[in-house]
Each structure stands twice: as C-alpha cells, then as structure tokens.
Nucleic acid binder design. Structure first.
Length: 288
DNA sequence: GACCAGGTGCCAG
DNA sequence: CTGGCACATGGT
C-alpha cells in the first residue's frame, strides 16, 4: 500500500462519474473505488471537495478524470430547456473522462444489448481471465489486442459475451495485425475516424460514437442509444422519428458539447428510472 | 414465458 | 433510405 495524496476539486463527483455508464471496471472498495488507469492500479476516493489518489499519480489521475475540463463553461453551452435543466441539476460534477482507447473500444463492443451491470461483469471477467494482475488488490489490466487475438472463441465465450465474442475476437485480431492503428485516428477528423471504426466487426455508429466521445475526446459526438432515442422522442420531438432525424436534431440542437449534454440526459433518465424501479428491492448501482 | 438491455449486420422492398 | 429479424445472456 503506497501513500495517498489529495487535491481540492471543484465540479467533480467521482462516484457519479464512474457510475454514469461510460466506464465499467471501477469497483467500490471501502470509501472509494479500486480500478486501474491503463496498467496502473489505482485506488481513488472523494470526501467533499477532497479527491484522494495514490501519491505520484497526480498528473495521470487528473488527465484521466478530465479535471481540466471547464465544466461550468461546458454546461453553459447546453440548451436551456426543462429536460436539459433537470439533467444538469441532477448531475453536478459529472465529467466525461479520458479512457485508454483500446479498452474503451473493446468494452463497448461487448456492450451491445447489455445492461450496464452486465457490461461491468463482462469487463471484469475479461480482465481477470486474460489481463495482467496489477497489484495486491487483485485489479487487472484490460488485455492487449494481441492477447485476445490469440484466444479461442470458446475461451472468450466463458466470459458470458454471447454473440459479441466473435466481434471482439475479430476486432482484436485486426488491431493486433496492425490492420487498424487506433493511435492514428487521434489525428483524423471525426468523420474519418468514425468511418474507420465502423469497419471493425461489432462496431456500428453508436459504438463508434461512444469511443469517439469517451476515448478520443470528441465532445460534440452524440451516441444515440435506446435511452437517448427515447428522450429525444418523448421530450423533444414528440413522436417516433427516423434515425436520420434523431441524428440531425442531436447535431443541431445541443451545441458544441452535445456529447456532454447527452451524457447528462442519459444519466439522469437512467438513474431516475432505476430509482423508480427500486421500490424496496436491492438492485442498482446508480448514484443520485 | 414475454420483454428489455448504452446494437450490429444483413436482407428485402 | 427504411423496416424487420437474428443474434446470447441475464434480469424483472
């Protein structure tokens, strides 16, 4: 156990950020969360405006949690309608973090038609079986593409991936074979990067957009999933719409940080809907 | 059982 | 371009 350092943070809520459906491998542990940033094991915690992390990892942690994002300014660019305002009030301190690209891509390939807690379970299972154990805490790294590429389909299926296993395996193979260089995409315009991502098996527009938003820091990109579709149709467009209309509206209406706005809408709707569904049962990991 | 989950790919019209 | 359907798995 190394020493702990801390800094003062404003407009940051660690728990909400980690539980908002953008990242899936952090596990509550005592008064904080155990996880990893790339292959560095981490324990992070927050008490009020004090943010705790392992001594010596300040730069890494600040970059990962995007503590340099000017959240107040970002939120000011959001439209001022009732739905958006309610989401903003519900989500103080929610940040879109900077994830390592491969683990973000791979995890979202496994996200198709899965609930957040299943995505989490799959991510942890893949890490535990095929990743590298990083410390005494038992936290594991996400396995590199070359590692997954060598597996038999059967091995991946043991992680309860279902029909997504083939896609993950094939994508890992292509990246391991350098058919696609995820680093190069950083320098490309969003449209071009999206086109290349969508050529990977199991990656369509929604997942490509998640990766662009959560790993490539394209904060204007809006992944339209079932929740966002529902919100757009009920609160904004009043009725069912084609995919093209949903895309057009998202791009036109939410401003330069549309992806950020979308994340607030997503988390608010999902969290409140889970709270309603609770009614005494013991499900749900969504912070309020 | 039916229905749903941060979808994708493929096929017919 | 659009709608329809299969695809695994786990939870209400």
């Amino acid at each position: 156990m190394g020493d702990i350092a801390s800094i003062r943070v404003t407009d940051f809520d660690l728990e909400r950020t980690l539980n908002s459906g953008q990242v899936f491998h952090w596990v509550r542990s005592g008064n904080g969360f155990a996880g990893a940033i790339g292959d560095i094991p981490m324990f992070v915690a927050q008490e009020g405006d004090r943010f705790f992390f392992p001594k010596g990892s300040r730069r890494l942690v600040c970059a990962y949690f995007a503590l340099d994002h000017e959240l107040t300014e970002i939120i000011q660019t959001f439209p001022k309608d009732d739905t958006m305002q309610a989401a903003v009030l519900f989500c103080p301190g929610l940040r879109i973090i900077r994830q390592p690209i491969w683990e973000c891509l791979a995890t979202f390939i496994t996200s198709a038609l899965k609930q957040v807690r299943h995505i989490s379970a799959i991510s942890l299972s893949i890490r535990k079986r095929f990743g590298i154990r990083l410390g005494e805490s038992g936290v594991c790294s996400y396995p590199e593409p070359v590692v997954l590429a060598k597996l038999e389909l059967k091995q991946l299926l043991e992680c309860q991936l279902g029909f997504r296993a083939k896609n993950l395996l094939e994508t890992a193979k292509r990246i391991a074979a350098s058919a696609v260089d995820l680093e190069v995409l950083k320098k490309l315009p969003t449209e071009e990067a999206r086109t290349i991502l969508c050529e990977l098996p199991g990656v369509g527009e929604k997942i490509a957009n998640c990766v662009l938003l959560f790993a490539y820091e394209r904060l204007d990109v809006v992944p339209i999933d079932v929740w966002i579709k529902r919100i757009l149709e009920t609160d904004y467009l009043k009725g069912s719409r084609s995919q093209a209309e949903l895309k057009q509206f998202s791009a036109d209406y939410f401003g330069p940080y549309a992806g950020y706005a979308q994340q607030y809408l997503f988390h608010h709707r999902r969290a409140t809907s889970m709270l309603r569904g609770l009614k005494g049962s013991s499900a749900g990991h969504v912070s309020t």
